[in-house]
Design a protein around this nucleic acid. Structure first.
Lengths: 237, 237
DNA sequence: CTTTGTCTGTGCGTTGACGCACATACCGGA
DNA sequence: TCCGGTATGTGCGTCAACGCACAGACAAAG
């Protein structure tokens, strides 16, 4: 399930699409396109990262795990970004888990190669930093949203963030898993999802969710979603 | 109220203390030591940053402001770090406000100079990135804490984070302001602070708070504080 | 066709935080 | 010394979310 990348394939990831031809020529031979199943853990909290990932159709969730086992998501990464920023930021590890939230494909590249190319200081270096700033905005807005907004609003935000990174309108994900991401009860998601289904915005059955009316979701979301969206566009658009 | 910096003064900020002699020689003539009063705004959300700040005794709070006027803090910066990472991350602005939480002194430096030195790619460049990663951890843990922990626990965390960055045990700050930082009601802080005062951990009166028993506070805090502390030590210690 | 496991729906008591209203206490200035 | 502004204390009704318990509903496997 491993092949070397072509230029067209690489462009499916927005970061790789933005690097210079010269940089891409160096990166391509080191990029492997692999498939990730739902639930696969790319790295555990505190674990040394051997690879950096550039998703194309997969979505990766960044999760914090507390001592008592409860979890909360701080951010989500799709074809707009990369997983493993600690590699070039200098820390090598982070205190969170990266887990596949939606099965799909991703490129992976050895951490050493990542560091080498980053150190060259070209457009790739700058792109990585701008992406990191966008991610900081997403994490910050998650913090604010966790404090100030209802589960209903947060579910809308989460669905929209996922939809933005999804190749289709279908999302394979149980309510229990969504609850773990948002750090709330499963029953809370049941109620919120039911309201969204009654409104005709989504339909779902046993872990198979379809987004029917994006604008409907946008009408129910808090301002947090748009702030993050705008900042991603500004920094990486 | 403006003087050029000496080496000893600069070392009061942990980041400046960590750069090479050569880098410091370039930076020093561009560093101005200034005093910041409580409540001063260093930059507004979305506003172009003209300066980067390296606090010595001042503490700066990074705040998000919602459309309805409610606020929530995502992180706090003292002599352990710097304000204005967006300058070298490439975004130039961020969607949050930076406001003086505790009056004191800070160095400031022109954004252009910051970019120039960062681009050189030396130890300063790496230090800035490692600090940014530490800040990401702080923001992430804030997100998790907002989701999962009580106001009491969060007040303990907030007091400890402030105390770590404070030159003394006194904190000039009303309960109303603390409530704005944590994004909760003023009455909630009144109750929590009263419990801490009854336990003998702090004493306060009309905006003048003193930390009496640090270990007491540590006994009431959630794990979030230690995670952030450990990560700062690992990355910058 | 039954069993087993998983996913979703629902009810109910509890609780932590909210919003509001108002009382009290303290400080500094006129 | 009084007064107005600010800081803190407190009570009370409301509400969103929690924890728990359990009931259907569906899918896959035997």
């Amino acid at each position: 399930m491993t092949t070397t990348a072509t230029t067209e394939e690489a462009a499916q990831n927005h970061l790789l699409a933005g690097v210079s031809d010269e940089e891409l020529a160096r990166l391509l031979p080191n990029l492997q396109l692999i498939s990730l199943p739902l639930g696969e853990v790319l790295y555990e909290s505190g674990e040394k990262m051997d690879y950096v990932y550039f998703p194309t159709t997969a979505i990766i969730s960044l999760l914090y795990i507390m001592e008592n086992g409860s979890t909360a998501e701080i951010g989500v990464v799709g074809n707009d970004g990369m997983v493993g920023i600690a590699i070039f930021m200098g820390g090598d590890t982070t205190p969170n888990r990266a887990v596949v939230q939606s099965a799909g494909k991703t490129f992976k590249m050895k951490a050493e190669m990542m560091k080498d190319e980053f150190t060259r200081g070209g457009r790739f270096h700058n792109l990585c930093l701008r992406y990191t700033q966008a991610l900081i905005t997403q994490i910050s807005q998650t913090a604010v949203c966790n404090r100030l907004h209802s589960v209903d609003q947060q579910l809308c935000r989460w669905l929209l963030l996922s939809h933005d990174r999804l190749p289709s309108d279908r999302l394979i994900m149980t309510q229990d898993l969504i609850a773990n991401m948002l750090g709330v009860r499963r029953e809370g998601i049941t109620h919120a999802a039911k309201r969204l289904q009654n409104a005709g915005y989504i339909s779902y059955a046993r872990g198979d969710m379809t987004i029917l009316d994006r604008e409907g979701l946008e009408s129910g979301v808090c301002e947090c979603y748009q702030v993050v969206r705008t900042e991603y566009d500004r920094l990486l658009g």
